[in-house]
Amino acid sequence: MRLMNRNPSRTTALFLGLLPFALLAIVYVLASAARLADNPADKLLPSLSTMAETFRIMAFEEDVRSGDRLLWLDTAASLWRLGLGLAISATLSLFIGIFIGFLPYGRAFLAPFISAFSMIPPITVLPILFIVLGLGEASKIGLIVVGTAPLMIRSLAQTVLSIPREEMVKAQTLGASSWQIALRVVLPQIWPALITAIRMGLISAWIFLISAEAIASTEGLGYRIFLVRRYLAMDVIVPYVAWITLIAYLTDRLLALLSRRAFRWAHLQGDAL
């Protein structure tokens, strides 16, 4: 049988899926053990137990200076910025995306602008945001919006445009107005695409969040990583990176699950990651 036609069983698939993680862990443990055998004070590749202990302290013990439990403080601050930024982007992309995709006038008015705007490297806007909005929350959330909204808008507008022309004509022959078609034909078909757009947006949202926090912040996951970098505190950085990855991964899975549960019709055909 051709390789392309062979499918792994459930257990095999699970094993294969876990294999790269296990390999990475093994390589790390071996390398770390080798370095620590040379120099027990080595900071570059701390042992798993050291990282676990540091993570426990960050999560459950109050910071001597501020009295905060730093991991939760940082996580809450970062998730608030990320969530608010993406919520704004999602709202913008829903309205502007439909406006561009559904109405020829909307397309003529905003499509060239959004296309041009989405080409701005968002990081270059960060100084402008800091100057205009100050160093507070607004500029960090602003960066996430600038970084994610244009692409999400374009993706949603494209989804609206690719709704078959036949559906639009059919709705008109049922007597529907533009408003009714937007509400009953376009909008419901866009929800799953919005979730996909958010999942795509999450990737860049994290990048911009960490960048903004690294430059000007007093708490947040990105702030902490860049703060302890000065002390080569790999035992903080590595668990923080793993923690961020875990949060991002779980958010992505949850959104995928939400889409399958809430919009069953959109997942009746084809495989999706």
């Binding site: 078959p164 036949e166 559906e167 059919k170 709705a171 022959t173 959109a266």
Partner: peptide
């Protein structure tokens, strides 16, 4: 009108 395809709404 009824077309060859896409004449009904897939989300309903």
């Amino acid at each position: 009108v009824v077309f060859q395809k896409y004449s009904v709404f897939p989300h309903l």
